[in-house]
Amino acid sequence: MIDSHAHIYAEEFEHDRDEVVQRAQEVGISKILLPNIDLNSIEPMLATEARYPDVCHSMMGLHPCYVNADIEQDLATIKSWFSQHNFIAVGEIGIDLYWDKTYQSEQEYAFRTQLQWAKEFNLPVVIHTRDSIEQTLDILSQEQDGSLTGVFHCFGGTVEEAKAINQLGFHLGIGGVSTFKNGGMDKVIPELDLNYVILETDCPYLAPTPHRGKRNEPSFMQLVAQKIADLKEVPLSTITELTDHNTKALFRLA
Rank of each mutant, 00 (worst) to 15 (best):
T136C: 10
L137R: 07
L137V: 09
I139Q: 10
S141I: 07
S141L: 09
S141V: 12
E143N: 05
E143W: 05
Q144F: 04
G146K: 01
S147P: 00
F152P: 01
H153P: 10
C154F: 12
G157S: 13
K163Q: 15
K163W: 05
N166I: 15
G169V: 11
F170H: 11
I174P: 02
I174Y: 00
I174L: 12
G175A: 13
S178E: 13
T179D: 04
T179I: 04
K181H: 15
N182V: 01
G183D: 15
M185P: 02
M185L: 15
K187D: 13
V188F: 09
V188T: 14
I189R: 04
E191G: 00
L192D: 07
L194H: 07
Y196A: 07
I198C: 06
I198R: 03
I198S: 02
D202V: 05
D202G: 06
C203N: 04
C203P: 08
L206T: 04
A207P: 12
T209Q: 10
T209K: 01
P210F: 08
R212M: 05
R212C: 09
R212N: 06
G213N: 09
G213C: 04
K214D: 01
N216C: 13
N216F: 09
E217Q: 07
P218N: 08
P218T: 08
M221R: 01
A225L: 06
A225N: 09
Q226S: 11
K227V: 04
I228L: 13
D230G: 00
D230L: 00
L231K: 03
L236W: 08
S237D: 14
S237Q: 14
I239L: 08
E241T: 14
E241P: 00
L242I: 15
D244M: 01
N246I: 01
